[in-house]
């Protein structure tokens, strides 16, 4: 192992340790540091996970569409690997948003689900993610799959603002700007930054894995052709 690779490995290890420490802090802040909310009690602490993943759900949709568009322009599967991993991670974030939101709604509103604008938007976003992943899984050829995924992600990301507008015009229940103490705000901020970094790391890992899978498949077919 030469000097450069060893240096890179150390940097990566340090990065991971920082990330883990940051996430541990975020969890401690959310569970221990932040004050208990007066009316909702401890259930309000779900917000410290719910808000970061909800924001990430929207962010990854944009990343998916952006990487899809980049693929269509450059025709490089590297971009498609990013679009693929972003869609998968985004789907996870969106699912977590729905689950945490639902848990919170159960304790705050006394119901698991309500057809409120934000909830409807999140649900439609989840459907669009599922649609993109479903469509991708039904196409075998990599470039064709990349094209289908890119086109649907672009359509989906265009659709989201429309959904937001359409649903906002109905009366909403979802808290828009809840009152928060400075301690709560800091906790939320640390959570948003920490979870964004964590999911970005996860997406990058998945992206590398997708790239490797492709190389393995290619080598397989080359070997098969040679035999």
């Amino acid at each position: 192992m030469n000097e450069a690779t060893r240096g890179a490995m150390w940097r990566f290890a340090a990065l991971r340790i920082v990330l883990a420490a940051w996430l541990a802090t975020a969890v401690w802040l959310a569970l221990g540091f932040a004050p208990t909310e007066r009316t909702m009690g401890d259930a309000q602490r779900i917000v410290y996970v719910h808000v970061p993943v909800a924001w990430l759900g929207l962010l990854w949709m944009l990343v998916t569409a952006g990487c899809g568009a980049a693929y269509l322009v450059r025709r490089n599967l590297w971009w498609d690997a990013w679009a693929h991993s972003a869609a998968e991670v985004g789907w996870v974030c969106c699912s977590l948003t729905l689950v945490t939101g639902s848990l919170w709604a159960r304790s705050a509103w006394g119901t698991w689900w309500e057809w409120d604008p934000r909830l409807t938007t999140a649900f439609i976003l989840w459907l669009i993610y599922s649609g993109v992943l479903f469509a991708r899984s039904s196409v075998e050829e990599p470039h064709r799959r990349a094209r289908v995924g890119a086109a649907l992600a672009i359509l989906g990301s265009l659709d989201i603002p429309m959904v937001v507008m359409a649903t906002r015009w109905f009366r909403g229940l979802h808290p828009m700007n809840p009152e928060m103490t400075p301690a709560m705000r800091i906790t939320l901020l640390v959570g948003v930054v920490g979870w964004t970094a964590a999911f970005a790391w996860l997406a990058n890992l998945r992206r590398k894995q997708i790239g490797m899978e492709r190389i393995v498949r290619q080598s397989q077919s080359v070997l098969e052709a040679a035999c």
Partner: peptide
């Protein structure tokens, strides 16, 4: 000079060349 010309043309379909 040439009506049709293809230069070092490769086509992959799936993972097969």
């Amino acid at each position: 000079e040439f009506a049709l010309e293809a230069q070092s043309l490769s086509v992959d379909y799936g993972h097969r060349r």
